[in-house]
Design a protein around this nucleic acid. Structure first.
Length: 176
DNA sequence: TCAATGATTTTG
DNA sequence: AAAATCATTGAT
């Protein structure tokens, strides 16, 4: 509890928050058991102008969580089978979120949600108050890599090419 | 290389 | 009301 990251960590712009999430400890309580994971790959989705961001289509029941204050969770189902786990960034009313793509030892957003048992019931939950999931200060990251976001070809040349995916390698985190 | 699989969004 | 879309994964 004492290490839980607080509101000001999340209420920054998503482009500041996303890379800062790398190396952070994700704590998940499953059946009373505490599990620790370290974030190794993320993607930023930023506002209504970002055509890859779900909120670019407007404020709907599905995207409502992205408009919440930073620190909330945005979940959605993709391809009928995989829940995507996103952390909302920034101030209330501005749709920004970070997709968590990989954790140390678990590569892939669909796989990590399955492993951590994350589903629709986490939609809109707060990482500041939840008793089953939160973030803590993790490992220090010396540097990180960036690249294009994955599977966003529909967003047009500019938005699909922009380097808003941030990642580190597992060995880097062990050393850190 | 492509099927699985279903909520959400659009009318393709 | 029907069809298309889709921030993926794992098996052919």
């Amino acid at each position: 509890m004492i290490n839980r990251l607080q509101l000001d960590f999340y209420t920054r712009d998503v482009l500041e928050l996303a890379p800062d999430l790398l190396g952070k400890k994700l704590v998940r309580i499953i059946n009373g058991e505490k599990n620790d994971y370290y974030i190794t790959e993320v993607e930023a989705y930023r506002g209504t102008e970002d055509l890859a961001c779900h909120a670019s289509k407007g404020r709907t029941k599905r995207t409502e969580a992205m408009f919440m204050e930073g620190g909330h969770i945005y979940m959605y189902l993709i391809y009928g089978m995989y829940w995507m786990f996103n952390i909302v960034a920034g101030k209330s009313g501005i749709p920004q979120a970070v997709l968590i793509r990989s954790l140390m030892g678990i590569e892939g957003p669909g796989k990590l949600s399955r492993e951590l048992e994350l589903d629709k019931s986490f939609y809109g939950e707060s990482l500041l108050t939840s008793e089953r999931i939160w973030l803590e200060k993790g490992k220090k990251i010396i540097y990180f890599n960036s690249g294009q976001r994955v599977a966003v070809d529909y967003a047009g040349d500019y938005w699909k090419n922009i380097k808003w995916r941030f990642y580190i390698s597992d060995d880097q985190i062990q050393a850190g």
